[in-house]
């Protein structure tokens, strides 16, 4: 870590106006590309970033493995991407009328770290057509639009999607029967997973 970065962090935590202005300008500049996507929430997200930066720097999370400006860019990117995805997340409001029995409807399955590994394992085993069809569904296409786009009959398309769903669920149940440690070892041996742990130590 450069000495100047440590000085900036120290002065920032002491409330020095110049250091605060410098850090804030770096944050604003890094967050500028997300302004259009976040629209009116951009200022609120920017404030969340400032609070998060203050919290992380105050807790000494910044260890100087990269420059302070790069560290701030990572914090800004994580926070802004989370907010962008939160905006585009599906809201299954129609299921409230169906979920009378208090079942686990509308509950996301990929909430934890191990579930992400599980999902990756499932996706690696399904076909590309399955991923493509379900991706179109997630993008909001109707089955009529998908049948025209893919050039198949509507009934055929619906059955294919059903088969893909059944296979993915079956794979998930199969993998869930294996312990998490075994799944991770198998994943590391067969197909290295994504590096979402990249900056978890710092963030």
């Amino acid at each position: 870590m450069e000495t100047s970065d440590q000085e900036v962090v120290s002065r920032y935590l002491q409330g020095d106006a110049e250091a605060v202005g410098t850090v804030d300008s770096w944050i604003s500049r890094a967050a500028w590309p997300y302004q259009r996507r976040l629209s009116s929430r951009w200022e609120d997200v920017l404030q969340d970033v400032r609070l998060e930066v203050t919290r992380l720097l105050g807790q000494g999370k910044f260890r100087g493995e990269s420059s302070l400006r790069t560290y701030l860019w990572q914090v800004v990117s994580h926070t802004c991407l989370d907010q962008v995805r939160a905006q585009s997340r599906w809201q299954w409001t129609d299921l409230e009328a169906v979920d009378e029995g208090g079942s686990a409807l509308a509950t996301p399955v990929s909430g934890g770290h191990e579930d992400r590994d599980l999902v990756q394992r499932v996706l690696e085993r399904v076909s590309g057509d399955c991923r493509q069809m379900w991706r179109l569904i997630a993008m909001g296409h109707s089955y009529r639009e998908m049948s025209q786009r893919m050039g198949v009959a509507e009934g055929t398309l619906r059955v294919r999607v059903l088969r893909c769903r059944e296979k993915a669920v079956a794979l998930r149940r199969e993998l869930l029967s294996v312990s998490p440690a075994q799944r991770r070892n198998a994943a590391a041996a067969q197909s290295p997973n994504l590096s979402e742990r990249a900056n978890d130590d710092e963030l």
Partner: peptide, 18 residues
């Protein structure tokens, strides 16, 4: 819904940043 969560999976923000 389970299948939706599986197929609608996206790399986490940290992975995209990295």
């Amino acid at each position: 819904q389970v299948a939706w969560d599986i197929f609608d999976w996206h790399p986490p923000p940290a992975a995209l940043v990295a």
